[in-house]
């Protein structure tokens, strides 16, 4: 196992063994990131493939001023965004126009769902909601940043997020009660 610096140097020399080791270290985590933005594992893998190619081609731009994992994750997210934009399968759901504000559920549900269930619910959101929820709630982007990334206004991002959040909470509550009900049956 090579040290991170050696690994990066190897990747910069286009050394296949180093590149594969870097890939192996981050592949599972990054596929999880890609999976959250897409509707299928195949799409998630397409995104990750494209993103890893970018990682290796642009690794010289990584200055070591932050965690390598965070840098790679950012590339995954950006690649996923581009993928959604240019893929006709997602374009219908990515319309952010004519959005009205909806009441927000301010009571946070108790998170009894495991990660798999939560991801499953998240991926059932319309693509636009899913995207903005991912960016804001999980990646930590502000609404201003999301607006710039997606070419929408800050308020649109905010309202979309509110709707996504409300919908998700509703589903979680329902899912939780169903599960509890099932456990009592």
């Amino acid at each position: 196992m090579k040290a991170p610096d050696q690994l990066i140097q190897g990747c910069l020399r286009q050394d296949r063994a180093s590149q594969k080791q870097l890939y192996s270290e981050f592949a599972e985590l990054m596929l999880g990131v890609c999976y959250r933005y897409t509707k299928s594992v195949a799409d998630a893998e397409d995104v990750m493939q494209e993103a890893f190619v970018k990682v290796f081609k642009n690794l010289h731009q990584y200055k070591g001023d932050g965690e390598l994992g965070a840098w790679i994750r950012r590339i995954m997210v950006n690649t996923a965004l581009n993928y959604l934009k240019r893929n006709s399968k997602y374009q219908g759901d990515l319309s952010f126009d004519n959005v009205s504000l909806h009441p927000v559920a301010d009571d946070d549900p108790q998170m009894l769902l495991d990660t798999r269930e939560l991801v499953s619910l998240l991926r059932q959101l319309p693509a636009g909601y899913q995207l903005i929820f991912n960016l804001h709630a999980i990646e930590g982007y502000t609404h201003v940043e999301i607006g710039q990334l997606l070419g929408i206004s800050e308020s649109t991002s905010r309202s979309q997020y509110s709707r996504a959040r409300a919908l998700l909470i509703t589903w979680i509550k329902k899912n939780y009660s169903d599960n509890k009900l099932q456990s009592y049956v």
Binding site: R16, Q19, Y35, V41, E45, F52, F56, K57, V119, A137
Partner: peptide
């Protein structure tokens, strides 16, 4: 609080990629 919990759960989300994914990436690499 909700966002925090979601973040915590999502941090642990890991998925095993397909066996041939590295081969596909390798083909695209210079």
């Amino acid at each position: 609080e909700f966002e925090k919990q979601v973040q915590e759960k999502m941090e642990g989300l890991k998925m095993a990629p397909s066996a041939n994914l590295w081969d596909r990436i390798e083909q695209d690499l210079p």
